[in-house]
Design a protein around this nucleic acid. Structure first.
Length: 882
RNA sequence: GCCGGAGUGGCGGAAUUGGCAGACGCGCUGGAUUCAAAAUCCAGUGCCCGCAAGGGCGUGUGGGUUCGAGUCCCACCUCCGGUACCA
């Protein structure tokens, strides 16, 4: 009767843990107690429920946490929900039901499924980003961003109150100064293009637009500029890149982030576009290089200032402010058309059509500051307005894109780099003739006084010379863009921002922040969620009393954009520490006690954006004294993807989705947990295999039978469990297992830890008697992986309380190895015999043992011993001749 | 193109710092138990030759270093993930 039956014991122990709040985390770790904060990337509660990918990472952190508790650490292990999101809003539009209703249903499903898997979360800390009391503090953090400017010199964010308004700005009047200050904030307004779909009457997210048509319905989508909120993440680019050094993340993830930040170093150079080049040059030599480019120059950015002499044309982006000025009347029509066409293209179109370069000549020229030569200026969309200065010098001989463009438009190609010796003479000739592009370093030619300099030295020298002449300077650029932080959606956090209105109800252009004491700004009641047909956000439909507050007799309009889904996930790890605090986002003492997150596990799809955004917010909060450490996530691990049984990505359309509910029903949560850990390394991509689940289920059954007498009518201890002292072999098996499992858990090598426990069970299944002193520690070792069966077995073994806080088994080094080891003896590198030597035998003992083997003696007898390698505990190798 | 990761039995995977390749599991084969089956237990299982003893081959490919290479070096191939005109 008492067969292993997870359907009975799992709900029983889950209820026990719930009722006893077994896994409640302390407010702070006790004095002198080590802490462990393990965080899972909280899920978006989709209508489909939990996916088998979720429990993978969640089980890994749960094992770490359960082991850490048994090792005496204070453990923080919370869970919550990233619950704002498009699907709930779409459902609301269709049905008229408030998105909160469906969101909460989905959360209930997720919570039930998570509890069903036996994770040791402190559920009293559960938060959802859609909780008003949570997003109150998301709004509060936005206000910190709004109240912060970035001091370039000190490289840190400071309160806007500490920003000194320069004289030349103050002179322009209060209004001007106020706008100037607003432009320095980390949260600022700007015009940015959105995907407006007139037919649907709504703005679409990028992923809802396919080939310029709406995903739903296939209606045309146009790009139009809209007032938006931006966050100045670019100010922190340098620190976001540099501080990666502090983190215990895989090199791959760090590289991904570095790549995204995209730091490059080079030079800015001004090309004169006026009449008297010599006079300009003389004045620049005196005045130096101005911070802002004047109207008399075209400022470019290049990473290859050593190719300045090879600049045969220039390109400005279609959106460059000088386009009109630089276009001569005879080119006006063509340039105008070109820029218009470019504006219509989405970013995607621009890059997808990248194969064929396009552009038009403006009719104007700039002067190359190093040699006074006239260089024609073109407009082309392969130059992006959002990077560098939006203008380049084109060096077709040494840049692939410029080369392609020059060939197409028949622009001269002037080589200025002699290729290195690794290039064949014939190829070098073609390069020098401008027939082939060469982008690697080399030696300067056709570069006046710089001829003969190597690329690296040239770069340094010319940067210094340009700087001395006031013509340029060293410069750094980042690919990272400022963060478009507003969405035209209902189901998101409202911005705590008010726009001042004049008497006619028009915006004056001034905005004020909602007072902290007036937070949260809750979402208004709407009659329905249907689009109102204008590009403005849906909150424009809100009732007057929400939309138009009056403060001190001044009427305001609330900001109607909402925040993107990223916002809530940027700081949830802080709120978990102090989820009920009504006075602060997180208590500083508590924050200090628990941060940073010691282990953060989640999918690689968040390797760039989520982690970059969260790190950015954290740094701002750090600068403003809200948190105590520069980085939030000390160690990061990305779990690998789980594929379907056919080795393809799991998806409904492929029909290969595995539902955790079904697996639990058939095998139990412990088997699901164990299987997901046994499949392979946590970080690897691996296919599902139901027979594998049955394999670990079988193992749990064997472990069960080791302790429980299956043939008894009631739950009873197996008859061969004794209080006898373990035999030497039994003790060694136990201690080896403890050592291996302990070390494997520390190294996140769960698959091998499970293999070691299987070996333990295989060994003891064959023993006539099983000492309690062996099986009890084993149950404790098993408990982080398969907690329900472990609790039940612990109970059967006669213990009253949960094993969650039992001391982790210790091993004795001398017992954690075999008494003697068998080592291979090689002759000329081939294994010819195996000899047994005592563990820890030294070199001489090992060698004589090898020599005394009959077969070895025969093989080496009478031959010259050329070399002898003896590695104690490993092998012996006789290298002989003759 | 660039960046990152990975290629090991029929399958998932293991192998500390260069030291017995294939732990553990699945699958397969045989056996015990059973009237029979399920369940359970035991044994075997990289490939090739051989009745066997034994021998040969073997970690994507080709070279190299070494007494010894899955592991280190060089050149390449394939697959997966990310990214893409970033000057």
């Amino acid at each position: 009767m008492p067969r292993y039956n997870p359907a009975v014991i799992e709900p029983k122990w889950q209820a026990f843990w719930d009722q006893n709040k077994t896994f409640a985390a302390p407010t702070k770790p006790a004095e002198g107690q080590a802490k462990f904060y393990a965080l899972d990337m909280f899920p978006y509660p989709s209508g489909n429920g939990l996916h088998v990918g979720h429990p993978e990472g969640y089980t890994a952190t749960d094992i770490m946490c359960r082991a850490a508790r048994m090792q005496g650490k204070a453990v923080m292990h919370p869970m919550g929900f990233d619950s704002f999101g498009l699907p709930a809003e779409e459902h609301a539009i269709k049905t008229g039901e408030h998105p909160r209703v469906q969101t909460e249903q989905n959360i209930d499903t997720f919570r039930r499924q998570l509890k069903m898997l036996g994770f040791s979360y402190d559920w009293d800390r559960e938060i959802a980003t859609t909780d008003v009391e949570y997003f109150r503090w998301t709004q509060w953090i936005f206000l910190q961003l709004y109240d912060t400017w970035f001091d370039e010199r000190e490289q840190r964010g400071r309160s806007i109150g500490e920003l000194e308004v320069p004289e030349h700005v103050a002179e322009m009047g209060d209004d001007f100064a106020r706008t100037w200050v607003d432009e320095q904030r980390l949260a600022f307004q700007s015009e940015a293009p959105v995907n407006w779909c007139p037919a649907l009457g709504t703005v679409l997210a990028n992923e809802e637009v396919i080939d310029g048509k709406s995903e739903r319905g296939g209606h045309p989508v146009v790009r139009m500029p809209l007032r938006q909120w931006m966050l100045r993440i670019t100010a922190y680019a340098e620190r976001l890149e540099k501080d990666l050094e502090l983190l215990d993340w895989s090199e791959g993830i760090k590289a991904l982030q570095r790549n995204w930040i995209g730091k490059s170093t080079g030079a800015e150079v001004d090309f004169f576009i006026g009449d008297d080049f010599e006079a300009w040059k003389t004045s620049r030599a005196k005045s130096g290089y101005p911070k802002k480019a004047g109207a008399d120059v075209l400022r470019i950015y290049t990473t290859r200032p050593d190719t300045l002499y090879g600049a045969t044309y220039m390109v400005i982006a279609p959106e460059h402010p000088y386009v009109e000025r630089l276009t001569t009347s005879e080119n006006a029509e063509e340039v105008g058309k070109y820029c218009e066409a470019a504006a219509m293209k989405s970013d995607l179109d621009r890059t997808e059509l990248a194969k064929d370069k396009t552009g038009v000549f403006t009719g104007s020229y700039a002067v190359n500051p190093v040699n006074g030569e006239q260089v024609p200026i073109w407009v082309a969309d392969y130059v992006l307005i959002s990077y560098g200065t939006g203008a380049i010098m084109a060096v077709p001989a040494h840049d692939e894109r410029d080369f392609e463009f020059a060939e197409k438009f028949d622009i001269p190609i002037q080589a200025v780099i002699q290729p290195g010796k690794h290039i064949a003479d014939e190829d070098a000739k073609k390069i020098l003739a401008g027939k082939v592009v060469y982008t690697e370093p080399g030696v300067a030619i056709n570069s006046g006084e710089y001829d003969g300099l190597k690329t690296d030295g040239f770069k340094k020298k010319i940067a210094a010379d340009l700087s001395a002449g006031g013509l340029g300077r060293e410069a750094v650029n980042y690919k990272l863009r400022d963060w478009l932080f507003s969405r035209q959606r209902f189901w998101g956090e409202p911005f705590p921002i008010l726009h001042e209105l004049d008497e006619d109800g028009n915006k004056t252009g001034h905005v004020i922040a909602v007072d902290e004491s007036d937070l949260p700004v809750d979402l208004p009641h709407l009659e329905d969620f249907k689009p109102h047909g204008r590009p403005e956000p849906p909150l424009d439909k809100a009732p007057e009393e929400w939309l138009y507050p009056v403060i001190d007799g001044v009427k305001y309009k609330r900001e109607t954009n909402t925040m993107p889904q990223w916002a809530g996930s940027c700081w949830y790890y802080l709120r978990f520490l102090d989820p009920k605090n009504g006075e602060a986002a997180v208590d500083p003492e508590i924050e200090k006690a628990w941060m940073p997150v010691d282990l953060y596990v989640g999918g690689a799809e968040h390797a760039v954006l989520h982690l970059l955004y969260a790190r950015f917010w954290h740094k701002v909060l750090y600068d403003r004294g809200v948190v105590s450490m520069p980085e939030p996530f000390q160690k990061l691990v990305n779990q690998g993807m789980i594929l379907g049984e056919n080795n393809e990505k799991m998806s409904k359309s492929r029909g290969n989705v595995i539902n955790p509910d079904d697996v639990v029903k058939e095998y139990g949560a412990d088997s699901l947990r164990l299987y997901e850990m046994f499949m392979g390394p946590l970080e690897a991509t691996k296919p599902w295999n139901m027979q594998g689940v049955s394999g670990v289920y079988n193992f749990l059954g064997r472990a069960w039978r080791l302790v429980v007498d299956e043939r008894a009518d009631k739950l009873a201890l197996a008859g061969n469990i004794t209080d006898a002292e373990p035999t030497d072999a039994q003790a060694r098996t136990l201690h080896k297992t403890i050592k291996a499992v302990t070390e494997d858990i520390a190294g996140l090598s769960f698959n091998t830890a499970i293999a070691r426990m299987m070996e333990f069970v295989n060994f003891f299944t064959k023993q006539k008697e099983v000492p309690r002193a062996c099986v009890e520690p084993f149950v404790l070792l098993l408990s982080p992986f398969a907690p329900h069966i472990a609790e039940e077995l612990w109970h059967v073994l006669g213990h009253r309380d949960t094993l969650a806080y039992e001391a982790w088994p210790a091993f004795e080094a001398s017992l954690a190895q075999d008494e003697s080891v068998e080592i291979p003896v090689q002759v000329n590198g081939k294994v010819k015999a195996k000899v047994s030597v005592p563990a820890g035998a030294d070199k001489d003992a090992t060698e004589s043992a090898a020599r005394s083997d009959a077969k070895v003696a025969e093989l080496i007898g009478g031959k010259d011993l050329v070399k002898l390698i003896v590695v104690p505990g490993k092998l012996v190798n006789f290298v002989v001749k003759g």
